[in-house]
């Protein structure tokens, strides 16, 4: 599937730094329509920074961010969200002190009422309907992740970005969630998945980018990422 759709997310020559610490060096990433891209790499490789820049939570020191062909470098995160970029950050992406219903309501906007969001969310994850009045913080890890996915998807995004969704979750729950992600991609949504646990996500990804030290080390077909490349990126084996 890779390389067929038009580019949805393009990061061009991105460099970024926290205060004086530079964390990304000239990173180029393109996610096309309907494609699932796995963004892999060890800790400190700069994966989460890529996501922050793509979702406009952080500004690059150099380079530009394009969404569906429009240059949106420097736009506000809320603006991108309204344009159909859905980001689920590391750590579940829910508001723990809001109920399930209120969490869903956060996605409401002009032309998208709460009831529509609930309808769509509960159709995808029926378990959430049972828990609609519960505080999101009291849900299980898997349900919390479902909630954030459900909320994001109810907005009909063009681009879905997921950061370390599997962290702290049982493998079976992770498998379930990634099945949903695959289904979403089949509906034509582009997906960028950040995972430390490479094997988990390579099974569903079309393309992959491997990063380390803020550089892109590999970019191409997901099938071409082999254990040796990964081991050397992660553990420094030769």
């Amino acid at each position: 599937m890779s390389g067929i759709g038009e580019p949805i997310l393009e990061l061009k020559n991105i460099s970024a730094s926290y205060d004086a610490i530079s964390v990304l060096h000239d990173v180029n990433i393109t996610v096309r329509r309907g494609e699932v891209m796995a963004l892999l790499g060890p800790n400190g490789a700069g994966k989460s920074t890529v996501l922050k820049i793509a979702s406009a939570l952080m500004r690059p020191t150099q380079g530009s961010v394009h969404i569906a062909g429009h240059d949106l470098t420097g736009a506000a995160a809320s603006e991108l969200a309204r344009l159909g970029v859905c980001t689920i950050p590391e750590g579940r992406g829910i508001f723990p002190n809001l109920t399930v219903r209120e969490n869903l309501e956060m996605a409401a906007r002009k032309g998208l009422s709460v009831s529509v969001i609930q309808e769509r969310a509960f159709a995808r994850f029926p378990i959430l309907a049972e828990r609609r009045t519960q505080l999101a913080g009291t849900l299980s890890g898997g349900q919390q992740q479902m909630l954030s996915l459900a909320r994001g998807l109810a907005t009909d995004p063009v681009l879905l970005m997921l950061d370390e969704m599997s962290m702290g979750l049982a493998p079976i729950v992770v498998a379930d969630l990634y099945e949903q992600v695959q289904a979403i991609a089949a509906e034509g949504v582009s997906v960028l998945v950040i995972e430390q646990f490479a094997r988990t996500v390579l099974g569903i990804a079309d393309t992959a980018v491997v990063m380390s030290h803020g550089h892109v080390r590999f970019s191409g077909n997901a099938r071409d990422v082999d254990e040796a490349t990964l081991s050397s990126a992660y553990l420094g084996t030769k």
């Binding site: 809320s78 969200a81 508001f95 809001l98 209120e102």
Partner: peptide, 26 residues
């Protein structure tokens, strides 16, 4: 705080500012 969009957004900002922003809140 519990029944209006603005109030829910206020509480959401308290919970997680950047996540609220990612959801289109300002």
């Amino acid at each position: 705080l519990y029944k209006t969009r603005l109030g829910i957004q206020m509480r959401a900002v308290v919970d997680d500012r950047s996540l609220a922003e990612l959801n289109g809140a300002r």
